[in-house]
Design a protein around this nucleic acid. Structure first.
Length: 241
DNA sequence: GAAAATATGGCCTTTACATCA
DNA sequence: CTTGATGTAAAGGCCATATTT
């Protein structure tokens, strides 16, 4: 996903929420297309023809559709949506149509403006594109889903990189701990050099971090201890684990 | 005013079809 | 021509919210 898309999505979603809260669907609801008004496959779409040919058929179908959609009841709206009104006269589901490039372009354009539509916008867009409002609605739903999917993929990649970075850091720190441990094993020589400091250096049994447990932790801190984690008021390292 | 019923729209998952290699 | 992969239109279900009764 591109950055612009992300921005548009965020903006659009917030706008969409506003729209949803403000609108009153009862008063400006779109006209539902009716089951019996759905054009047949032959008139609505040509499966194997060119886009131009298919356009003609689609527009013929959609025009007759919108012209004939003159009466409906409020309660039929949801039903219409759920039933899809996408069946031909035989009761068979309508074949899936492919939107033309022009239709897709205009839909994309609108989507950039806002990712959701109120009923008026939906109706207007449907008329402009010679599609049923339900088709416009579905297109926006699917488009939002695609946007979300892409964003999820981007987030996933980001998390993956974070994970890899943390894994590397963890390896590095483990290696450091091993080095400190081996230093402790060679303590006789080590202690001759720094007896005061090494006497207070230890490895936390819980987290295996090298810590300084000297009583005077503030002033007698061994240089290596600076890389260990902060224990605050605890006198024993394991108490902080 | 509270509660139940209803309407509406969005999201999610799945299906089916179109297209392409 | 067939086939598998991919993209996407569409269906169906569920949920949240708003409105009506």
């Amino acid at each position: 996903m591109e950055f612009d898309d992300i921005c548009n999505t965020a903006l659009g979603l917030s706008l969409g929420c506003l729209v949803k809260k403000k609108l009153n669907p009862k008063h400006d609801h779109f006209l539902p297309s009716l089951l019996s008004l759905a054009p047949s496959d032959d008139t609505y779409q040509s499966a194997t023809k060119t886009d131009a040919d298919a356009d003609v058929h689609r527009q013929q179908g959609a025009s007759s559709l919108s012209a004939a959609a003159s009466s409906f009841s409020n309660s039929s709206v949801k039903k219409e949506r759920d039933l899809g009104s996408d069946e031909d006269e035989d009761g068979c589901p309508r074949k899936k149509l492919r939107l033309t490039k022009e239709q897709s372009f205009i839909l994309e354009d609108k989507f950039k403006e806002h990712t959701t539509l109120n009923p008026k916008q939906k109706q207007a867009l449907a008329e402009q594109l010679n599609l049923r409002p339900r088709q416009v609605e579905v297109w926006f739903q699917n488009r939002r889903a695609r946007t979300k999917l892409k964003q999820t993929e981007v987030d996933c990649e980001l998390l993956k990189k974070c994970y890899e970075a943390l894994t590397e850091e963890n390896k590095r720190l483990q290696k450091e701990v091993q080095e400190f441990k081996s230093l402790k094993l060679t303590a006789p020589y080590y202690m001759q050099l720094l007896p005061a400091a090494t006497a207070t250096l230890t490895v936390c049994p819980c987290c295996e971090r090298v810590v300084n447990v000297s009583e005077n932790t503030s002033t007698g801190a061994f240089a290596l201890e600076q890389k260990s984690h902060f224990f605050g008021p605890f006198t024993h390292p394991s108490a902080a684990c």
